[in-house]
Design a protein around this nucleic acid. Structure first.
Lengths: 348, 348
DNA sequence: ATGAAAGCGCTAACAT
DNA sequence: ATGTTAGCGCTTTCAT
């Protein structure tokens, strides 16, 4: 089956009574190489025929595709939707790049397949939000000619990497959230997470422990590990939170101050606690991490640590769309606590 | 700059000591045209060199791109994230199609630019969630060789369309939500929406009015129109809801039963009402439309009309990826009310 | 059973 | 100032 009824550079050339190269020249900003009159004729022909040069053919020739790959755990997770929005608008407005998006559901095979496909599609820049322990596949993508940026991971120390890394200061985010609880008088603290360890989770937990230790609470601070995420990946994280909230509600020895892995988890936690008859923040305080706009809508409003999503998205796009190797590691430290109503003093 | 260090069909041919056409033949399931021994040599070479045929070149030749365009108002809106997830997984698993996504922020120029780009990229199938009044640009995309599916719009009656339409039964959704309020004894009803009319909003409102009329409430039922959405499009819809909730809270004559345009609006409404000191559902009842998982997390849990998102997503992908013209209109009638806790009897 | 050749739509030397 | 040519990586007749 032939390509659709699209006009080609030849059609334009014929219409303007010039050669294809002349058309190509005006297309590529070399209009000064010809008589103004010719240029105008060509431009008129382009307009008349509604000609848009095929990116396919351009790519085949130049090896460059104006496409950016974005790999997220799940598009149904509002957090990634938010990041995707920022990535897209920056990529589009500043660099004229379109977005080719994929969800991995945190599955290594899906992630690998995505990279294969990107390569085959001629996509040479990709941003990955991965939770895989290994980063070898990313390095190998770079070796195959890609520019890749990894979000929410640190560069492996001592191991020079061709992969760029952008991450919020997860340690500080965890610390800030925990310190806020401590400041309100909480002595029984827990960090609530899902099964499976990622680098960013580890950092948030380290921040949690650091704050607890600083308050002399090292002994009592604990980590609560929810169930694993099912095939659907990330939107179920709230379900896990809800189940844990329910479970905590039934436990008279439960912690009074909870730091959630992220806002979705926090929202789920609050729902579970409430269902279990426990009042937030009167009986239990909860703080989230992320900065989802949804946190402002919850009841009580969720106190959380806001991450500089837009800045990070822009940094990733710039690093990947610009020339030269991306910086191996950029840590965004502008994390700040947004107080709402989910934190109060613990019950006496 | 040349294409990256990628192996081509020529490399494979050389490695296997055959011609490129032979390699192409094994690639395209014509392995029976040669000696098994040859085939094996080729396959070994493919594996050894990690060869993936360039989709670019294939496309240029065949005119087919295994890419699906998806145009949404905003990826930051969880509803569209959810739809995108379903579209992606169906497109990928069943048809091997990758997703090229774009946000329009309900802007006609951005929408047009997206279509231009898709065309230039050789993308021949696109799913659009548009709120533009006109559908001419879609028809013209079809004329230019695209298969296009439109979500949440009806086909214009009497006007044969090459564009396929998939939509939930918005009328029934609005009716169901309203009837639920009526069944709980509400007599002062309002449909709460944002500025700007779309086809689906009109249908939901019609359902609202039909239910109100059936209950003898035609006179008192009213439509409340919030502010316009700013550049960011859709995530601010919750903000509009919040502002309206606040406003309603201050109005002693306010309706007691609210049908929100969608779940995000409903969530915002509840937050605004609460901030204004009005209790949901004791003083005001709220019902949403969509079926966001977030509705289960709110406090009180949001009663809403669930739309068959997955089914619709699959239908769109199948219509567009299959052969032949897409059906001009498919209305999905499996809308159902999910009861939670945001509806109760009105205050006496 | 296999290969040579043409061509998809474009770009960029290199002529003229 | 403009045209000719070669070629990007692949598919597909058509020869051999």
């Amino acid at each position: 089956m032939p390509v659709a009824n699209v006009t080609t550079i030849q059609d334009v050339a014929r219409h303007a009574e010039v050669s294809a190269s002349t058309v190509s020249n005006v297309l590529n900003g070399r209009g000064d190489r010809m008589r103004p009159e010719t240029r105008e004729r060509v431009q008129a022909a382009i307009a008349a025929l509604q000609f848009r040069p095929s990116k396919l053919a351009q790519q085949l020739k130049t090896g460059q595709t104006p496409l950016l790959g974005l790999l997220v755990p799940s598009m149904a997770n509002p957090m990634y939707g938010f990041i995707a929005r920022e990535v897209e608008s920056c990529a589009q407005e500043r660099f004229g790049l379109r977005l080719l998006i994929g969800s991995t559901y945190r599955d290594a095979a899906k992630e690998a397949a995505f990279f294969e496909d990107m390569l085959a599609h001629g996509v040479r820049r990709v941003i990955v939000i991965s939770s895989l322990a290994e980063e070898r596949h990313l390095e190998s993508a770079v070796e195959r000619g890609m520019a890749v940026m990894s979000y929410d991971r640190r560069a492996t120390p001592g191991q020079p990497s061709a992969v760029g890394h952008v991450t919020p200061d997860n340690f500080e985010a965890g610390r800030l959230a925990t310190a806020h609880l401590v400041a309100h008088g909480h002595r029984r603290l827990a960090f609530v997470t899902v099964a499976g360890m990622t680098m960013s989770r580890r950092d948030k937990m380290a921040g949690f422990h650091a704050a607890a230790t600083a308050a002399g609470l090292a002994g009592s601070a604990k980590v609560l590990d929810g169930g694993p995420l099912d095939e659907y990946g990330d939107s179920v994280i709230a379900e896990v939170g809800r189940a844990m909230g329910l479970q905590l509600a039934a436990d008279p020895e439960r912690p009074t101050g909870l730091v959630a892995l992220n806002d979705l988890m926090a929202l789920g936690l609050m729902a579970g606690l409430r269902e279990g008859g426990v009042a937030v923040p009167r009986q239990v305080s909860v703080v989230g991490i992320d900065g989802l706009f949804l946190a402002a809508l919850s009841n009580p409003g969720l106190t959380h640590v806001q991450l500089p999503i837009r800045e990070m998205a822009q940094a990733m796009v710039e690093a990947i769309a610009g020339e030269g190797a991306p910086p191996p590691e950029q840590i965004f430290r502008q994390v700040r606590l947004v107080e709402r109503a989910s934190v109060a003093a613990p019950p006496q």
